[in-house]
């Protein structure tokens, strides 16, 4: 009698080994996340052993170089906040407008041409945006301001904010485009059948339905703006500046991180360790934003019972 027995009796052992190797590979990503968390956390704890935790979040003086160094990060957080605000006020309307045009108005051929073009914006390295902001946009803003009698810094928050906003447009537009397209067509048809105009349908029916997805896109955009480094390193200032004037120079969390780690300081000086304290703040905020953003998208998916988005 013929048996269908395999010649390789060790097969199940080999299979198990391969499976464990795959699990091992999958663990790397978890190790990375925890590696980032702990490497930042430990150094940040070292920093807070030397300098006050409360003053870090509430103090307004940042002077790492002096003998009696002070680390009040409030002006740095404020600068980050203002530049992010400028970036979002550019990216949100333009990104959302582009997404609405592409999903609601554009013909199929227009879409196939326009979508990759917008994605080119996302593919441009941030160092290139930084060069553009510093060499072209900042002098342009200074010239315009001079001609209308205002004074602007060459490292103005406005220049880096606007260019950062342009960088974020594709983040907002591509995710918003996906969710708007995913809104069931029956909703649109129902609204149009009731005599609403197209723009009324979009504003009152489509956008509210897609809202969780749009908010999620906006949160992702904010998280991107907070963590963006090259544009601000090249175009924004180094001076912590607590001000509302967007024509002045301001600094951000990422700029200070780069600045304190690029020099030749001793690794255990408070000036160097402050980079990790700032990094920890950045990590916590961006992670929270991302988790909320993912929750929002899940809500949207559940609402329309979609599996792929």
């Amino acid at each position: 009698m013929q048996t269908f027995e395999t010649k390789n009796r060790n097969r199940h052992i080999q299979e198990d080994m391969i499976k464990y190797a795959l699990i091992l590979a999958a663990t790397i990503s978890i190790l990375t996340t925890f590696g980032i968390l702990f490497s930042i956390l430990f150094e940040a704890i070292e920093f807070f052993k030397l300098k006050s935790f409360v003053y870090f979040f509430t103090g307004t003086e940042w002077s790492p170089g002096t003998v009696d160094s002070k680390f009040g990060a409030l002006p740095i957080f404020a600068g980050t906040f203002i530049i992010t605000l400028i970036a979002m006020s550019v990216a949100l309307p333009i990104g959302l407008g582009s997404a609405i045009f592409m999903s609601e108005y554009a013909t199929k051929t227009q879409r196939t041409i326009l979508k990759p073009l917008l994605e080119v914006l996302a593919g441009i390295p941030t160092v290139v945006y930084g060069f553009f902001a510093a060499i072209t946009v900042a002098p342009f803003i200074v010239n315009v301001c001079n001609s209308i009698g205002l004074e602007a810094s060459f490292n103005s928050a406005l220049a880096s904010g606007v260019v950062m906003g342009i960088m974020i447009i594709p983040v907002i537009s591509s995710l918003s485009d996906d969710v708007i397209t995913a809104v069931p067509d029956s909703l649109r048809k129902g609204s149009l059948a009731l005599g609403m105009t197209k723009s009324e349908t979009i504003k009152d029916v489509v956008i509210p339905s897609a809202m969780p997805g749009i908010i999620s896109a906006a949160l992702l955009g904010i998280s991107k703006a907070l963590g963006e480094t090259m544009i601000v390193v090249m175009a924004a200032g180094l001076r912590p500046n607590l001000s509302w004037n967007i024509l002045e120079d301001m600094t951000t969390v990422t700029v200070r991180i780069v600045d304190s780690l690029v020099g030749d300081q001793a690794f255990n000086s408070p000036a160097t360790l402050s980079a990790f304290a700032l990094g920890l703040a950045l990590f916590v905020v961006t992670l929270t934003l991302n988790i909320v953003s993912v929750r929002m998208i899940q809500k949207f998916k559940e609402k329309y019972k979609m599996s792929s988005l």
Binding site: I36, S39, N290
Partner: peptide
């Protein structure tokens, strides 16, 4: 975890590289 990893600002990977 992988989703979150994709959203972590790139500069923090630099801090990881430096520390580890």
């Amino acid at each position: 975890n992988i989703n979150n990893l994709a959203a972590i600002p790139s500069i923090l990977f630099g801090l990881l590289g430096l520390a580890i």
